[in-house]
C-alpha cells in the first residue's frame, strides 16, 4: 500500500505542469483573437473610460509575463471574469459555470456508466467467440458507432426515439429521467464502441499468454480462468485509457449538450461563442481542461490500484 501512496503523490506532482499548461493555453486564447484583446472582454457599448479601466486592470500595456501573472492571480482568487453576453451581462463567469457544471457532470457520469457497462461485457463476449457471427456483428457495430460523430448519432437517436417513436423527449430542458436518457445514450454508445474494441483485443492478447496456459494446465475451470484471471488482466489497458476516454467525453459533452439543448457547460460554451461572450468561453474551457486533468489523475490512481506493477513507475 505504501507504494501506492507514493505513486499517487508522484502523479499529483506531475499533474501540476499540465494544469499550468492548461492555464497558459487559456490565457493565450485572448491574444489569438483578432484585433485588440480588450474588445473581447469588454461589454458591448462600453464607454472609452470603461475600456481604459479594463486595460489597466488586465495590464495590456505591460509585459506578457506580468499579464500571465495577473491572470494566475485572478484565477487563484476564483475570478474568472465577467460575462459580456447580452443575456448574462456583468454576471460573474464563475457563478454561471457553477450553475451549469452539475448538469454536465451528471450527463458525463451516466454516459460513462453506459459506456463501460455496455463496452466491457461486449468486448469479452466478442473475444470469446472470435470470428463467429456474434463477433463479426459486434465488430461491425463498433466500426459504425466509432465512425459516427456524436452529433450525428444524437440527431439519429433524436429522430428515432423522439420524432418517430415519441418515447423520449428531445429537449433536455424538460427535466426528469427521460430527458437525460437520449444525450447520455448518445455519449455512452460512442465511447462504448471504443471500449469494446479495446477490451476485445486485450482479451485476445491475454488469453494467448503463458500464464493462462499454465492455469489451464492446473485444471482450473474455464469460467474461472476467463472471468477471474483473464478479465482482470485484460481490463488493465482499458483502465489506462479511461483518462483519454474522459477527455473524449468532455469534448463529446459539448457537442451532445448542444444537440439536445441540455443546460450544461457545453451548451454554455456554444451559446457564448455565438454571443461573442469571450470571458465565458475562456472560463468554460479552463474548467473543462481542469476536469480532464483531474479525470486522468483518478484514472491513473485506479490503474495503480488494480495493477501492482505500475506503482514502481
Amino acid at each position: 500500500m505504501a507504494d501506492l501512496v507514493a505513486y499517487v503523490i508522484r502523479k499529483i506532482l506531475l499533474a501540476i505542469p499540465v494544469i499550468i499548461l492548461a492555464t497558459f493555453i487559456v490565457f493565450l486564447m485572448l491574444y489569438l483573437t483578432p484585433g485588440d484583446p480588450v474588445i473581447a472582454i469588454a461589454p458591448p457599448h462600453a464607454s472609452v473610460d470603461e475600456i481604459q479601466k479594463l486595460r489597466v486592470k488586465y495590464g495590456f500595456d505591460q509585459p506578457f509575463i506580468v499579464q500571465y501573472g495577473k491572470f494566475l492571480w485572478r484565477l487563484m482568487h476564483g475570478d474568472l471574469g465577467t460575462s459580456v453576453g447580452r443575456a448574462t451581462l456583468n454576471l460573474n463567469v464563475g457563478d454561471l459555470i457553477v450553475q451549469r457544471l452539475p448538469r454536465t457532470l451528471e450527463l458525463m457520469a451516466i454516459g460513462l456508466a453506459i459506456s463501460y457497462s455496455l463496452g466491457i461485457p461486449l468486448g469479452i463476449f466478442s473475444a470469446r467467440r472470435q470470428n463467429s457471427w456474434g463477433d463479426r456483428s459486434v465488430m461491425v457495430f463498433t466500426l459504425v458507432a466509432y465512425a459516427m460523430p456524436s452529433f450525428w448519432l444524437g440527431i439519429l437517436l433524436m429522430l428515432l426515439f423522439a420524432v418517430y417513436l415519441g418515447w423520449l423527449p428531445a429537449e433536455g430542458t424538460v427535466g426528469g429521467y427521460g430527458s437525460i436518457a437520449l444525450p447520455a445514450i448518445t455519449l455512452g454508445v460512442g465511447n462504448a464502441a471504443l471500449t469494446t474494441r479495446m477490451m476485445r483485443s486485450s482479451m485476445l492478447e491475454v488469453t494467448r499468454q503463458d500464464y493462462i496456459t499454465q492455469l489451464r494446465s492446473r485444471g482450473l475451470p474455464e469460467r474461472e480462468i476467463i472471468y477471474k484471471h483473464a478479465v482482470k488482466n485484460a481490463i488493465l489497458p482499458v483502465i489506462t485509457v479511461i483518462g483519454l476516454d474522459i477527455g473524449w467525453f468532455v469534448g463529446g459533452a459539448v457537442v451532445v449538450e448542444t444537440v439536445f439543448a441540455w443546460p450544461g457547460l457545453g451548451m454554455l460554451i456554444t451559446t457564448s461563442i455565438s454571443n461573442h461572450d469571450f470571458p465565458v468561453v475562456q472560463g468554460c474551457i479552463l474548467i473543462l481542461a481542469l476536469f480532464v486533468v483531474f479525470g486522468n489523475l483518478m484514472a491513473d490512481i485506479l490503474y495503480a490500484y488494480v495493477d501492482p506493477r505500475v506503482r514502481l513507475g
Partner: peptide, 25 residues
C-alpha cells in the same frame, strides 16, 4: 475429465516463470 487430471495427477512446470505466473494475483 481432463480438468480433473490436470494439476492433480499430471502437473507441469513451465519454462519462463516470469510469464507463467498471473501478474495481478
Amino acid at each position: 475429465q481432463m480438468r480433473g487430471i490436470r494439476g492433480k495427477f499430471i502437473s507441469m512446470i513451465f519454462q519462463d516463470p516470469s510469464t507463467s505466473l498471473d501478474p495481478v494475483f
